[in-house]
């Protein structure tokens, strides 16, 4: 880009840069700074500067102030990562066929289906998650139906389990997987699939060697859009999981409220962010490596 062109584009970029600076960089810097301070007695932070919040993530202080390895927070992070990963995998397994189905309809139907996918966003996520409580609880719709049809006499407890959390997360984030995959599949030239069949590719081979490589960009985008928010979610774990186990999201929430330890809450979110960043960089590198071997 020439010097004058750069001068000319800068004013055009300014609003975007401003938004990124004010709404992304500044809060991150504040969170980063807070994570190195000491907790105030009634919330907030105070001096001195310390790395204690990060030490605490892996170590517990014994009575004599010596450090002992403590895996509590690792277990909580591990559980959240596993749940977010499971959410992502399930979203791909459900989202890919749905997106393919949508992409194969005619234009009018496609538009209608895209609209249908976005309809849940018209309602607040808290309310939608709470609806799952009403559906799944012991006196809920599912149990009423099961008892009414005589499948069972006693209500089955679906709620307050990891499976219920997973259901809530997949439900919440599935649209974020469907839409990007659909966007890539919609542009897919159907003649490529026909050509594959002409060359004696079966259904599986056509999918594996023609559709999948083209859909992969959408799956990758969807994976980021699903995995990252699922990792920090605390609504589904608290409502559908019954708050029985902590997730990263609820852990951070707790530190900023009743536990009044803002530095540790900030440190936990910095660690979470670092993890996500590293995962994304690795994924991006691998993809770059595949494209240009």
């Amino acid at each position: 880009m020439s010097g004058t062109a750069r001068v000319r584009t800068l004013p055009l970029l300014a609003p975007a840069l401003g938004v990124i600076l004010v709404f992304m960089v500044a809060p991150m810097l504040i969170a980063g700074a807070y994570s190195f301070l000491t907790a105030g007695a009634y919330g907030g932070v105070r001096l001195p500067v310390t790395g204690e919040a990060y030490v605490r993530f892996l170590f517990d202080r014994d009575l004599d102030d010596s450090l002992i390895f403590d895996d509590t927070y690792l277990v909580i992070f591990g559980r959240s990562i596993a749940l977010a990963a499971a959410t992502t995998v399930l979203s791909v397994l459900i989202g890919l066929p749905v997106a393919w189905f949508m992409a194969c309809r005619d234009k009018a139907t496609r538009d209608l289906l895209v609209l249908a996918i976005t309809i849940p966003f018209w309602t607040n996520l808290l309310i939608r998650t709470y609806c799952w409580v009403l559906i799944l609880r012991d006196q809920g719709l599912v149990n009423a139906a099961l008892i009414g049809t005589g499948v069972t006499s006693e209500p089955i407890t679906f709620l307050y389990s990891n499976e219920a959390i997973l259901l809530g997360l997949v439900y919440s984030f599935l649209p974020f997987m469907v839409l990007p995959i659909y966007a890539t599949l919609e542009r897919l030239d159907p003649r490529l699939v026909e050509a594959a069949h002409d060359l004696y590719a079966g259904r599986w081979a056509a999918f594996r060697y023609v559709v999948w490589p083209l859909a992969k960009a959408g799956v990758a985008a969807g994976t980021i859009l699903v995995f990252v928010p699922a990792l920090g979610a605390f609504l589904a774990p608290d409502l559908l999981g019954g708050g029985r186990k902590l997730m990263i999201g609820s852990l951070i929430h707790l530190q900023f409220t009743s536990s009044r330890n803002w530095p540790f809450g900030a440190a936990a979110s910095m660690i979470l962010m670092a993890f996500v960043l590293v995962a994304l960089v690795i994924a991006a590198r691998r993809r770059a490596g595949q494209v240009a071997p």
């Binding site: 907790a39 509590t72 852990l251 009743s258």
Partner: peptide, 20 residues
Amino acid sequence: PACPEEATQLMDRVWTRLKK
């Protein structure tokens, strides 16, 4: 009463272990 910081931290620890 409003618990001092030390007590709040201990409660936080117990709570975290409880929900580990």
